[in-house]
Design a protein around this nucleic acid. Structure first.
Lengths: 173, 173
DNA sequence: TTGTATTTTCAGTATTTTCTGAAAGCAGAT
DNA sequence: ATCTGCTTTCAGAAAATACTGAAAATACAA
């Protein structure tokens, strides 16, 4: 029965392609998203060459994006005994994926924003014109809110899956 | 005392520049982020020409990004009596900004992902090989999680500011 | 109408990002 | 030492994205 295998391959290819397209919208490199999709649905760890072949991309491209995924913590290198080449496997647990992405995005997106806002709030503290006060107040509010969001992200990313579900269920109920 | 005015202008220019740079990291067009920063810190609504001059960009660019901000719901056009040209002002309330962005990102990023996952889960439902089952299960889990996130986003975006703060405080406490 | 102020669109250009192909690097085997 | 198999880097090509400048459309006024 090879029809089953064909159906699976087809579904998987579609998932990879679509996830890549989504990645683009998310501001993520398309190849990176595709590799992630590929590895998330791989039964076994894959080598760089297997990834290259599956996605029809160059070695350089595959390599760069595999490294990037490893840097994000979404993929880990696996060494197979007696084998020289590197294999890679993706984290498959959705909660784990989510917290990893949340932590990384917080670090890359929220923290720099917070720094900017704190600086601008500070710089405008002593301006006593009405416009100056309004500006300062706006910066302060933004800083407060983003700081708040930052702490929330930490809390949520630090939760165990079960606890998060419990909390969220209460929230949705 | 013109030093105050200078300090304010300087602080504001820095905010605009930095917010633009952050926008880039967030996957948002730099000019769009700059206009947003400019309008968030404007005492009065601004015209397209004022924006053009303040940021030294072309009319086409200013126009496109103002429209985009209006489409996002972060900026609204203002008509001034007896004036023909359009003015624009930004929403300044941080909670309102947050819920607007959350709703928009959910629509643009989460919903399409959910559609893809639902389709892939459905397509793989009847594949009874071990790999097929694993694939289906992975799609199912992703779908469940993203659907969950979607509902959460709705809830939070629908909250009144006060309620959200109350909830979050409990969470952080 | 006709004129004037303003907005909108768009073809072409510039910039940024991503990808390739090939060379260089590295480690174990011979 | 040299080879062999694999990884890493990188300069330039290709693709995607953003911006400009100017023309076309629209709206209002005389």
């Amino acid at each position: 029965m090879n029809a089953e295998r064909d159906k699976l391959d087809h579904a998987r290819e579609e998932f990879v392609a679509q996830w890549g397209a989504l990645g683009t919208q998310w501001g993520i490199n398309r190849t990176m998203a595709q590799i992630h999709a590929l590895l998330m649905t791989a039964a076994e760890p894959m080598s760089t060459d297997e990834v290259m072949e599956a996605l029809e991309v160059s070695r350089g491209n595959a390599h760069t994006n595999l490294k990037e995924l490893v840097a994000w913590g979404l993929v880990r290198p696996v060494v197979r005994k007696g084998e020289r080449r590197d294999y890679f496997e993706a984290e498959k647990d959705v909660w784990h994926i989510f917290t990893t992405v949340a932590r990384e995005r917080k670090r890359r997106e929220i923290e720099p924003a917070l720094a900017v806002l704190a600086k601008c709030a500070e710089e405008s503290r002593e301006i006593h014109t009405p416009e100056g006060r309004a500006f300062h107040e706006q910066m302060r509010q933004l800083e407060e809110f983003v700081g708040f969001a930052s702490k929330m992200a930490d809390r949520i990313a630090g939760m165990k899956h079960g606890f998060a579900v419990q909390l969220a269920t209460k929230l949705l109920g």
